[in-house]
Design a protein around this nucleic acid. Sequence first.
DNA 1: GTCGATGTTATCAA
DNA 2: TTTGATAACATCGA
Length: 291
Amino acid sequence: MPELPEVETITRDLKKCLVGWKIAGVWSDWPRYFRLSGGLEKTRKNLIGRKVISIQRLGKNILFQLSGGYVLAVHLKMTGRFIFTPRGVEGLGSAKESSHIHLIFDIKKGGKKSKLNFSDVRKFGRVIFGKSDEVMARPEIGGLGPDPLEISATDFLGRISKRRGKIKTVLLNQNFLAGVGNIYSDEALYLSKIHPLSRTEKIPKERLKELFLNLVKVLKKSLKLRGTTRQDYRDLKGQKGDYFAHRLVYARKGEECPRQIGGQACGGVISTVKIGSRTSHFCSGCQKVYK
DNA sequence: GTCGATGTTATCAA
DNA sequence: TTTGATAACATCGA
């Protein structure tokens, strides 16, 4: 589910409405979320009473910076989503939706009370809580690569020159770059005419540079459209993202390639191949395999 | 009813 | 070191 544009959208919205609120309580019927934080009870004890100082995205994680030098890092994984509406869950009007809420933060500010709900159909979500330096020292957080929107093409080329193996796998590796997932790696490879099975070390430098520029381009475009909703993704208020209608190859298996080459249609067909258990989408005609 | 797929990642074995 | 399979879990559609 959420990749960089989706998580960034949620983070920005959370920042607007949650900074300054205090955590007043934590409820969960799925303690497994806290397996990396010493369990629900321990987390609750240290978390309650802390104020949200700021919120930022780190890769696909949402980091809540809390008073006292603590950090709460939430990963949405496949189906996690935060729900914060003026009327709470009731505002969404769906009983089915509320049955998927497995984590609730009670929050307060001044005299006001509210709830930040975490809905997560498949319960893959994950919470890491602790003192800032402890959290940042964890491999899941501290081991993350740089953000594609914050490095230069030169940085990217320097990093990728040390990598080998299938380009698709490299792009999905969060320790290489943080925030890129299945959708945008497919889109960027398509834009760059690089086949996802290409060996990274065999791709010419200028093609890799192109790949980076296209990756940044597609991430920014999706961010403007508030992300991609195929099935599950929703923002804080339950709205879908609009990039799906603009996608080029992702989830378009069997369709004709949208590319025009010199006024002519490419003529290829969008196909798929499994790479590392993920479905990759590519055009059979215009994406070259470097091997 | 069964099978395969879904935007993620950790883990284990070859 | 790299890879592939599997597991974590629920739902949807063929």
